[in-house]
Design a protein around this nucleic acid. Structure first.
Lengths: 164, 164
DNA sequence: GCAAGAAACATAACATGTTAAATATTAACA
DNA sequence: TGTTAATATTTAACATGTTATGTTTCTTGC
């Protein structure tokens, strides 16, 4: 019976372990990304490269720090990613006149074409997810995720974009 | 006025961009992990090492593949992590008699002591999050995340642990 | 039994995450 | 003005994620 008891205890602990918030978020993200990764891979861009390019299509001429915040990529990673995107001719970098430290980044025509090629497919996959899970339900999940994020945000932290 | 128009358009696109499910999940996860990382760092374990150790306390004697699934770590990563944990004397590896390919992994006494030291603090941070966000609300979020994950799971995919 | 295929891990190669430190430039201020 | 502190970005070092491939060990069909 000790065997049974310990087995039961193990099962309970396991359930507790599986009920970890970071892991729940990780699994959900992984499930979502599984729908996008093949598409991005077909076009030889990584998830992060895609996020950066996508952000660059929304605002012309971003500074590195701004891009990092918008695309949720850490500066060290972004620094490497920009090097790659630059080599591939998908972006252009230029230093700012008013502040020589700053780097201005703009998407190139080729980068824009790449986004234009991938974009529609990405939107389609996104629509598939919304349909499978329920559009309304998905909106509610967004709201809860945003709430959790801002609820846990420390003062010095990056806030969510204004929801005016 | 063209400037105003383009600015408005950019703002709209930006909002659409920020409304990306992968990024919402990423931000939420990041906000949560920000509460745990300092603790883990204090004890010189990474997030993934912690997940592996924690899983190993729930079931004695796991095979590598099982541990990978339970802790949501890919086999290549786990392979490296186990090497590290082994070197640090936190786990023990042994080959299985019935199947020479399989590797049995067990947490060591020292590993168990480490988990015992960190565990309570981790639980405390977890409780803090539950209090800040609302315990009930957090449970609901779990349920939605699990639902999203299984909703998007492809057939060959790893299912969620049984919720009997 | 044995050869072909599957399974369980390990390794390799490249990209990214995380932390700390370096570099260059600007701002602040005594 | 010159020295110090702060800012923007980069680089370094190490750990992990992702994909592909290698290795060993079962399994299966013949």
């Amino acid at each position: 019976m000790s065997a049974i008891l310990s087995r039961t205890k193990a099962a309970d602990d396991l359930r507790a372990f599986s009920r970890s918030l970071p892991m729940a978020l990780l699994k959900a993200r992984e499930a979502v990304m599984a729908r996008f990764r093949p598409l991005l891979r077909e076009h030889d861009v990584t998830e992060q490269q895609w996020r950066a390019l996508r952000a660059l299509t929304t605002v012309e001429g971003l500074r590195a720090g701004e891009l990092a915040r918008l695309s949720c990529i850490s500066m060290p990673s972004l620094s490497r990613i920009l090097k790659t995107l630059d080599k591939r001719g998908l972006i252009a970098r230029s230093s700012e006149d008013s502040d020589q430290r700053a780097v201005n980044i703009a998407i190139s025509d080729e980068g824009r074409r790449l986004v234009a090629r991938i974009g529609p497919h990405s939107e389609q996959r996104y629509a598939d997810i919304a349909e499978a899970f329920g559009a309304r339900r998905l909106e509610a999940l967004y709201a809860e995720l945003d709430a959790l994020t801002s609820c846990l945000a420390v003062d010095g932290e990056i806030p969510l974009p204004d929801e005016d």
